[in-house]
Structure formats: C-alpha cells, structure tokens
Simulated assay, not measured.
Amino acid sequence: MEPVSVSRGDSCLILSLPHTGTWLPPEVYSSLNERGRTLADTDWRIDRLYADLVPGVTVVRANFHRYLIDANRDPSGRSLYPGQNTTTLCPVTDFDGFPIYLEDKEPDPLDIQGRLSNFHEPYHAAIEAELARVKGNHGVAVLYDCHSIRSEIPFLFQGVLPDFNIGTNGGVTCAPEMEVSTAEICSLAKDYTMVLNGRFKGGWTTRHYGRPQEGVHAIQMELTQSAYLDAENAPFAYSQAKAEMLRPHLESVLQALIARAKGAAPRKEA
C-alpha cells in the first residue's frame, strides 16, 4: 500500500485529503481496542464529496488512517491548540477522549519515528512536490485542505459546530481576497452556518505551507458531517440528497479561489 495517492491536474488548485484513508498495518489494527477499530474519527466520504467539483485540480490523498499518524499534525508533536483538548501526532485517544489502544499497546517513541518516516514525511513530500510543480506552471499555488468532523463533540468544543469552518490561522495563510471570498460564499449559503477562524483555525498543513507573500496560499475547510452524511455514526453513509445541496457551495468556493489566485500571484520586480 502506497502511503499517498496523487492525481495531477493542470490548474493552480491542490486539494489535500489527510484524513480520508482507512488503511492500517495489521499489527497496528490488532493493537487497537474495540473502540479504536471503528475508526470513527475518519473524515468520512470527503473524497466523494469533493470529487469532480471543478476541472483541473490536483488531489493529494493520504491512504493511511489518522490513528496510525495524523498527517495534519506538527511532526515535532507540538500542539496546534495549546490549552485545548485535541488529539496528538500519533493519537492514543479518540475525539471523545477515550483510549483507542489495548493496554500496553500504545506506540512508543521508536514506533512514532517509524511512522513519521514511512507515512507523514511521504505525504508532505508529495504536497511539496505538487506545490512546486503548480507554482512553476502558474506562478501561484492554492492548497485547499479538506476536512470534516462530527458536529457535536463535547471533548473538543462546546455546543454545535457551524457547517463551514474556515481556517486561515487568523488571515496569515492566504491572500485576504481569498479569505473574504470563501467566507462570503459560505455566509450566503442558505440553511448553512459558518465561522472564520473559530475552533479550527487551520492545522499544520495550512500553517506550514501558507506563504502568500511567496505565492503559496493555503486554506482549511472543516465541514460538519451532518451537512452531507445520513448520520454522524456508523456506517457514516453518504447522503446523496444532502451532498447535492452542499456541493454547489463548495464548487463556488473552489472556483473563487482559482479566480482570485491570478490576481494574487507575486509580481516580479522590473
């Protein structure tokens, strides 16, 4: 099993999918407890939701599950949200705070280093390669990090999460017009709610690659699974009816990012 799959397109837009993979090495799967084996914290069906929304996009997808190693966490293990409940680089609890490993089966430092080398690093090497290729072709690259999560998880946040959670780390990871356009489209989407830089301000991928002054723009979109799944529990079935309502708004966001990218390309000095 290759750790990452890449589908190359000819536009300036790259979609990254760090949490849709469900593969685990047999020895890791067998070390999980019954709760862990449900893989409940997967970004279920996000790859299907975004499929073929706009032409020419490049897609970088992690094939491994986030319980092996989280491709959207700082490889140093440093928390992205100090002082708040969250899961770690190699999670030992789920989003509800419950253990996912059998007793004495949690990964040790050597395991974590191996997972970094074999999975986390190849995923980000693929992103870096595609950003370089796309920027070389267009003078600018836009990385859109695709995520989803259950709408109610008391361990991580209070109340009900908005449907659209846009993260730009306080406006520093992309051009202002990209942030504004994305927020405007989501705020005008009838029957949906949105927030900009709320509980989810962008993970390590967005924060690490977003360098608008260098022509690389990054933005994270965390969707609530209630917006496109039949239910936020197993089997996490895709709702065609809900998806057909949501997809046009996502298409508008992606098209706006492509359109704004041309004006956001760095100008060469004379």
Rank of each mutant, 00 (worst) to 15 (best):
I127V: 15
P26V: 01
K201V: 06
K105N: 13
H138V: 14
C146P: 01
A259S: 07
G9W: 01
L223A: 03
L89Q: 04
V253N: 10
Q220G: 03
P99W: 02
L143A: 12
A125T: 15
N233K: 06
H147V: 08
A237D: 05
S76L: 06
T193E: 04
G203N: 12
E27N: 13
W44H: 08
E177M: 06
W23G: 03
H120Y: 15
A183N: 11
N169R: 15
G203P: 06
G97M: 08
Q225G: 04
V172K: 07
S5Y: 05
L229G: 10
Q225P: 05
Q158D: 15
Q225A: 00
T206A: 07
P107V: 14
T206F: 05
A261G: 08
V57D: 01
L102D: 09
L24E: 02
G36C: 08
V134L: 13
I185R: 12
L156S: 14
I166H: 10
T173F: 06
R115D: 10
G210C: 08
G210A: 02
V60S: 04
H124L: 02
G9N: 03
H208K: 12
E251P: 01
N197Q: 09
F64Y: 00
E251M: 10
G56A: 13
S151C: 03
Y29W: 14
V60K: 07
S187M: 03
R45H: 14
E34A: 15
H65R: 06
N63S: 07
V4Y: 08
I69K: 11
Y67E: 12
P162R: 07
R199C: 09
S79H: 04
F236G: 02
G21L: 00
I153T: 15
L24H: 02
E222P: 02
A126V: 11
Y29K: 12
R267S: 06
I112N: 04
H208Y: 12
H124Q: 03
P212H: 01
M194A: 09
I100N: 14
V60N: 04
R211K: 00
A270E: 13
N33V: 13
S16F: 13
F200P: 10
R61C: 15
L254E: 08
